[in-house]
Lab assay of single mutants.
Amino acid sequence: RLRTTILPEQLEILYRWYMQDSNPTRKMLDCISEEVGLKKRVVQVWFQNTRARERK
């Protein structure tokens, strides 16, 4: 499996959503993934990793 590259524009959108809610619902993940143009699972893992980084 290839690692997904997240573009700066996509990152900006993801962080904007993250500021609103760091733990989005499944429905929100659907909306975010549509807006960003990434698979739902990629967005979900990005949120998990970002929460983990914040805890450090």
Rank of each mutant, 00 (worst) to 15 (best):
R1A: 08
R1W: 05
L2G: 14
R3K: 14
I6Y: 06
I6S: 02
P8V: 06
E9C: 06
E9L: 04
Q10G: 02
Q10T: 01
L11K: 14
E12L: 04
E12F: 06
L14F: 00
L14S: 00
Y15H: 10
Y15K: 14
Y15E: 13
Y15A: 12
R16C: 05
R16Y: 04
R16K: 14
R16P: 06
R16T: 08
W17T: 05
Y18M: 05
Y18L: 01
Y18F: 08
Q20M: 13
Q20F: 13
D21S: 05
D21W: 04
D21G: 02
D21M: 01
S22H: 13
N23T: 10
N23S: 10
N23E: 13
P24E: 04
P24V: 06
P24C: 02
P24D: 02
T25P: 10
R26I: 11
K27Y: 08
K27Q: 10
M28W: 02
M28C: 06
L29W: 01
L29S: 06
D30A: 13
C31L: 12
C31P: 05
C31G: 12
C31Y: 10
C31E: 15
I32R: 01
S33H: 08
S33E: 07
S33W: 07
S33V: 08
E34Y: 04
E34F: 01
E34V: 02
E35C: 03
E35V: 05
E35L: 02
V36K: 08
V36L: 10
G37V: 02
L38V: 06
L38H: 10
L38Y: 01
L38W: 07
K39L: 02
K39F: 01
K40W: 08
R41N: 13
V42L: 06
V42F: 06
V43D: 01
V43E: 01
Q44E: 15
Q44Y: 07
V45Y: 09
W46A: 05
F47I: 00
F47Q: 01
T50I: 03
T50L: 03
T50K: 14
T50R: 11
R51C: 00
R51W: 01
R51T: 09
A52E: 15
A52P: 04
R53S: 13
R53C: 14
E54A: 05
E54W: 00
E54T: 06
E54V: 02
E54P: 00
R55D: 12
R55E: 10
K56M: 05
K56Q: 08
